[in-house]
Write a protein that binds this DNA or RNA. Structure first.
Lengths: 341, 341
DNA sequence: TTGTAGGCGTTATCAA
DNA sequence: TTGATAACGCCTACAA
């Protein structure tokens, strides 16, 4: 039972607890002798600082909260990893909450995090979050909040995202350069900005290259494999089916590939496909899949840095920082026609 | 700035803070009137309990620590998810540390967790952990510790694992029933029990079915794809190459499949392959891969339950609980010869 | 350079 | 049923 407190040390040494505290904290106004003595006996007695008491006293818990839809999605777990690795050297712990992509649960989790007195909150908002009252409460309390990936546009709140627009643009541009002209798009949930941005990137690239945009080529999907197979079926029944698909999700892209192969249509020879997210399976499919890497670990590290800067500010001015990371186009076989020739 | 304390409420109501505290905690010896009054004003004033103060007072932080090698590996993040989901309703938070599969970092992380006064620790030990001094310290402090997946055999410590032996046995048995007789094995790091168990399951199944065990068929691998390609190359150069491979890892199994396909050997017609872990990519490879599901979310939930039982025990008797979950053989195309015919 | 005292927000004990 | 007080372990004015 190690319950050694500074008081125990002070008794043993016949000095005051205050002196012990100062010695332990390298307070300059303390004699070298006493400091060393204290340090030594603290060591001997196996003293360990009670962080809870410290937290209560200082109002700082040295803990940050992270809110994600599900923590076992590779993208999110990688972001969390990035945050953890950046924050660990600074003495912070990360506590993780899952919203299950549900706004109600998000609110509840925010509450418990506030209650746990976290020093900061990182979050990727849920799909169906409309109201932002819970977020406002965080801000009112002066607790640094950083959005990552899925954000809400709230003045004064920092965010770290990737340039989804550009990721999409690069993808589509790549497809065009492979010689594709009739490019379809699998559109994700437009409640989320990321999907809107990808859509817009697609539109812009098409326009920039003077390619017609066919409404029939734009199919709404969720991020499931089956959604991709269904979508591609619809596309191939069109009088003039597309010669490429830019999907906003790797899963739907995979569904499309599977379905196409089943019907004997060759990828990429007959139709080029590209996905989004660089899910780990994309490197193992056949053909391997072209996709956009979102650099999640980097995103996590960046978010952590934004947070650290925020709390370092002497004045608690709410500085809003919008970091936009560049995504990485990963070209693989599912779209690489030219290499094959 | 909501910094409403019970003291603020007490002042407003001209009663003592103690009464407020009791009312808030549904203490029976309090008049209904005052309770309701307190509740109402607490609500009005936006009172929130300071968990830090509570933690200091009670010595309970309502937080548990989880130690994993890397939190973005799908297996581990899924276990964590399971733990989180089971513990959340009980008011616990999970704080996560990464050991990077390094014993030193493991020790350090244990220290910070103890320092943060967690109420319990869940861990999957690092590959190179030999000394268990840090674990003993946890036990000495009377903090519940639960191993999951990768455990050390320490008396008094509970663990939740899957029956790796049986998972392997089922796999090999399945291969045998497909008509395979010369079954090779990709052996993992034998510092870890899980790989030893899988190896033993393999051996037993072979023996039970009177199949000869050829030393040349047992290849050491790490869990990388390339390790699998290298291993299979070695195997195929043997005078009598195997007609099946039971791999202790999905990644090495994948490497094997890739290499075999490259050399024109058909899977499963010429050689059957099975992996281990049910990594998400295994359902998308070609052929889809037979593997063993470790039910990680279930493992997390189970671990959480073991922890909850442990802290519920009135007497702090160290009861050791060894939960062994049954793995699930997932039969897919890479080994399914019979279905094809 | 060191000690004293007060407080962070709660709850538990003892009186009233 | 309620109130006063001490205590959890630490830090920090202020005083010495």
């Amino acid at each position: 039972m190690s319950k050694v407190t500074i008081y125990d040390i002070s008794k043993k040494l016949n000095i005051s607890a205050a002196t012990v505290s100062r010695a332990l904290n390298n307070n300059p106004k303390i004699s070298l002798k006493t400091r060393e003595l204290v340090m030594k006996t603290a060591e001997e007695m196996n003293y360990e600082q009670n962080t809870l008491a410290l937290a209560l006293k200082s109002g700082k818990s040295n803990t940050v909260g992270i809110l994600v839809p599900y923590m076992n999605r590779s993208f999110f777990s990688s972001v969390i990893r990035g945050i953890e690795e950046e924050l660990y050297p600074h003495g912070y712990h990360v506590i993780i909450c899952q919203t299950r992509d549900d706004a109600k649960s998000e609110v509840q989790n925010i509450n418990t995090l506030l209650n746990a007195q976290v020093d900061g909150i990182f979050m990727s908002v849920s799909k169906n979050t409309k109201d932002t009252g819970h977020i406002d409460r965080v801000l009112q309390k002066g607790i640094p909040l950083v959005f990552f990936d899925r954000k809400k546009n709230i003045p004064g709140v920092s965010s770290v995202t990737i340039d989804d627009f550009n990721g999409a643009y690069m993808s589509v541009e790549h497809l065009i350069k492979q010689g594709c002209k009739r490019i379809a798009h699998f559109l994700g949930d437009i409640n989320l900005e990321i999907y809107k941005d990808r859509y817009n990137g697609y539109l812009r690239a098409m326009t920039d290259y003077n390619l017609p945009i066919d409404k029939n080529y734009i199919i709404r999907t969720n991020s499931k494999v089956e959604s991709g197979t269904a979508a591609v079926k619809k596309l191939m029944q069109l009088p003039s089916p597309p010669d490429a698909i830019f999907s906003s999700s790797d899963f739907t892209a995979l569904g499309a590939v599977q379905e196409l192969k089943k019907t004997g249509i060759r990828v990429p020879d007959d139709i080029c496909i590209s996905g989004f997210s660089n899910e780990s399976f994309t490197q193992y499919t056949e053909p391997t899949m072209t996709t956009v890497d979102q650099t999640p670990i980097k995103m996590g590290k960046m978010s952590a840095r934004v947070f650290l800067e925020q709390i370092d500010e002497e004045i608690s001015v709410t500085i809003e920082k919008k970091v936009v990371l560049s995504p990485q186009l990963v070209i693989r076989d599912s779209s690489d026609r030219l290499k094959k020739k």
